[in-house]
Amino acid sequence: MNQDSTKISLTNRSKVVSNKKMSFLESLYLPAIFKGMFITMSHFFTKKATVQYPEVKRPVSDIYRGMHVLKRDEEGRERCTACGLCALSCPAEAITMIAKERLESEKHLYREEKYAAVYEINMLRCIYCGDCESACPKEAIFLTDRFVPSEVARDNFIYGKDVLLEPKDAPIDVSKRQTPEVLAFKKDKTQLHNK
């Protein structure tokens, strides 16, 4: 077997380099220059790849994993019960929380008897894997298709409940990440997380 046939080509675009003498026309370089200028001119009129970000947003996948949201239930109560499973499942250890017992007067605010008084995600540590979402037994945390905006100080990337919690009057749609398959998986008694 000769050497050429054993070469593996990945793209079929490799070119054999040769040192052959240039013809007179080639040595003038002018045809090549005009060809090059024609190519750049053709790019002048092509559709531009720029996305003008704040006005135009690049389309993202339906199940894009971006900034988190802490959901409320139908009555506007916080779903999170501060069980700490999200923090435990987080591979980047980005989530911290402080749990607190619900008072009788706070029943309209929190769904469960225990709630997260402080809930913080360090957005610089977060790797947006979505494990917190899978771990959550209360369907309280979801990743959304929102972006984390830029900041000038690192401390500003530690998001508390003021940013993460879903506003009462403007619910955030997570139905695309809440498909029947997901719900079935969450309620599956044979799975480890429901035992």
Binding site: H43, F44, K48, T50, Q52
Partner: peptide
């Protein structure tokens, strides 16, 4: 501007 246009930018 022209540099941008030649490079498919704006």
């Amino acid at each position: 501007k022209i540099a941008g246009f030649f490079q498919d930018r704006l």
